[in-house]
Amino acid sequence: MEVTETWYLVLSAVLFSIGLIGLLVRRNPLVMFMCVELMLNAVNISFVAFSGAFNDIAGQSAVFFVLVVAAAEVVVGLSLVVMLMRYRASATIDDLSVLKG
């Protein structure tokens, strides 16, 4: 039984969907960020799978950039959470509705 890239792509689709469900269902902003990380990881799996399928290093470079963007996103996102939590200790994402004008 040989592992083809289709296996990786199906796994990636499943992982992305789990992250998507979590993002839509959960209301704790920290857990929502974790779900975004899951979705980014799913995309990384498919990038590396395509890199192997085409025997082309460009897919692996793309993973590197995704990694950097994920790190930047977490830093800014978590500082937004810290700011939100200063106003309310048990904040959910719904409390960001105070941002409406």
Binding site: T6, L9, V10, A13, V14, F16, S17, I18, L20, I21, L24, V25
Partner: peptide
């Protein structure tokens, strides 16, 4: 919750069908 799960499962089904 139901809408979220439905959206996720539907998304997965669309990707796999395309694949």
């Amino acid at each position: 919750r139901y809408a979220g799960v439905l959206a996720g499962v539907g998304f997965c089904a669309i990707i796999c069908a395309g694949l």
